[in-house]
Structure formats: structure tokens, C-alpha cells
Computed example of a mutant assay.
Amino acid sequence: MNQPGNVPPLFTPEELAAQLGVDIETLRALREKGTGPAYIKIGPRIVRYLGWDVGEWLAESAENEP
């Protein structure tokens, strides 16, 4: 999945919230709790999510569903 030369798509919190059907505040809460998808910070206020990290988080979340 993570191959050299492959650049994953980057999602803003707004884009990811819309794609997941959740509020942007939900993503912020997940970041603060450490339970959401991995993210990167670009500078002090810019958050981005890597596409493959989101995919892995969704797969792990589905595996943990009862």
C-alpha cells in the first residue's frame, strides 16, 4: 500500500468529515482522544489526513464492531 513514489491523497478535516458523514467537531474530538485516523500537522494550525491512514482506520474500526 505505502509504495515509494506513491503520494496518497490528502484530505482536509472538512473534506474527510463530509466523506464520512460526520461533523468536523467529531473529527476534532477523535484527534484529541487519539481514537481517530492518523493525521499530520503542517504548521501550527493545518491538519491533513493521508488517504491510506484513513483507509486503515476504517478497516480497523470495522474489525472492532460487534
Rank of each mutant, 00 (worst) to 15 (best):
58 L>C: 05
16 L>S: 03
17 A>K: 09
59 A>R: 15
15 E>I: 04
11 F>I: 08
43 G>I: 02
47 V>E: 03
29 A>C: 14
37 P>V: 10
10 L>V: 09
31 R>F: 04
11 F>K: 04
62 A>P: 05
45 R>F: 01
66 P>Q: 13
47 V>H: 00
26 T>S: 11
40 I>N: 04
10 L>A: 11
35 T>E: 15
29 A>L: 15
1 M>C: 05
42 I>N: 01
36 G>C: 08
11 F>E: 01
5 G>V: 01
36 G>H: 05
29 A>W: 14
26 T>V: 13
39 Y>G: 04
18 A>R: 12
45 R>H: 04
14 E>R: 13
50 L>N: 04
17 A>Y: 08
21 G>I: 11
53 D>W: 05
36 G>V: 11
20 L>H: 02
35 T>L: 14
8 P>S: 12
6 N>D: 05
62 A>G: 09
28 R>E: 08
44 P>Q: 03
13 P>N: 09
48 R>T: 03
46 I>Q: 07
17 A>W: 05
50 L>T: 02
48 R>Y: 02
19 Q>N: 13
40 I>Y: 05
20 L>Y: 03
24 I>G: 14
41 K>P: 01
26 T>P: 06
44 P>W: 00
57 W>P: 07
33 K>L: 12
10 L>H: 10
33 K>M: 11
51 G>P: 05
61 S>L: 13
31 R>L: 07
63 E>R: 15
51 G>T: 07
38 A>G: 13
63 E>T: 08
54 V>K: 01
27 L>S: 02
34 G>W: 14
